[in-house]
Each structure stands twice: as structure tokens, then as C-alpha cells.
Simulated scan of single mutants.
Amino acid sequence: MSIVTILLNIFLPPLAVFLKHGLGTTFLVSLILTLIGWLPGVIHAFIVNK
């Protein structure tokens, strides 16, 4: 995982997931989790972008 990916996972979790997986259910889950709360979105982004 590059430093850019780590920073995107922290500051813009849906964008990091989109760049790796494209527009799909994984992105939508990340977007919803980030809208509910920032921390769940960050955790999901780190898990998905291993």
C-alpha cells in the first residue's frame, strides 16, 4: 500500500475505494459508511484496500 493510498484512506475513504475497485457495491458501502460516520468509512477503506 502506497503512502498516497494510506492518505486517501484516511481523508477521503470513498475516493480510495473507487480508485481501487471502481464504481460498484464496495464503493457504495464505503460512501454510506463515511456518511454515517468518518471512522467506519476509514476502517472499511483500510480493510478493502489491503
Rank of each mutant, 00 (worst) to 15 (best):
N49L: 07
L12Q: 02
I6G: 03
N49W: 07
F11N: 00
N49C: 12
I47D: 10
V29K: 13
I47P: 02
W38E: 06
L28R: 00
L12I: 07
T26G: 05
P14M: 08
L7D: 00
I3L: 11
G37A: 13
I32A: 10
N9M: 03
I3F: 11
M1A: 13
P13L: 05
L7P: 05
S2A: 07
H21K: 14
S30H: 04
V4D: 08
V4K: 15
H44N: 14
V4I: 12
W38H: 13
H21L: 07
I3M: 05
A45E: 04
G37Y: 04
I47M: 06
L28V: 13
I43V: 15
V29D: 02
L31C: 03
I47V: 12
N9L: 01
H44C: 12
S2P: 03
V17S: 02
L35N: 02
L19Q: 14
T25F: 12
V29Y: 09
N49T: 11
A16E: 05
G41V: 14
L23Y: 14
M1W: 05
S30D: 14
T34G: 08
N49M: 08
L35W: 10
S30M: 05
S2E: 09
I10M: 12
F18Y: 14
G24C: 00
K50S: 12
S30Q: 07
I32T: 08
L31P: 00
M1F: 13
G41W: 08
N9V: 00
L15F: 14
K20D: 11
L28Y: 07
L8R: 05
L19K: 14
A16H: 04
I43A: 15
V4R: 13
V48Y: 01
L8H: 06
F27K: 01
